[in-house]
């Protein structure tokens, strides 16, 4: 099964962190991604720019609304995503608890429903 691991954690700037903590954080993410890759389960990984760089748009009111910042403002922000392909939820939980942000934030485990590959959507899981 494909799962997306959504990493939520309090944002800290490079200055707030200090060079050592920053280097340590990057090393931990690097190690994690390489472990997933070595196990043959990593599909993709993406670390996002801080929320300050987020732009949110909506046409829900009938008109284009462009907003500076995220849709939901909270202490912990979505900071990155890892897509993995593993046997079941227990395996996904196993990998999620090794993610560095599990120690200072939260990791959401979300099964994939369908994805767009080679010009078409894959089979939708109707569960």
């Amino acid at each position: 099964m494909r799962y997306t691991l959504l990493m939520y954690y309090p944002e800290m700037s490079a200055d707030e962190l200090g060079p050592e903590a920053l280097a340590e954080g990057m090393r931990a993410f690097d190690e994690y991604a390489k472990a997933l890759d070595a196990a043959g389960v990593l599909q993709s990984a993406e670390v996002l720019q801080p929320v300050a760089a987020t732009t949110t748009i909506s046409l829900a009111t009938g008109e284009l609304v462009v907003q500076d910042g995220p849709f939901a403002d909270s202490r912990e922000q979505l900071g990155g995503t890892f897509v993995i392909d593993v046997a079941d939820l227990d395996a996904a939980i196993g990998w999620a608890q090794q993610a560095p942000p599990a120690h200072y934030g939260h990791v959401e485990i979300r099964p994939g429903a369908t994805r767009f590959v080679d010009g078409a959507w894959t089979t939708y899981d109707h569960h």
Partner: peptide, 12 residues
């Protein structure tokens, strides 16, 4: 029951 299938809880 739906959640069991959807989240991929293993029968193990």
């Amino acid at each position: 029951k739906k959640r069991i299938g959807l989240t991929g809880i293993p029968f193990a």
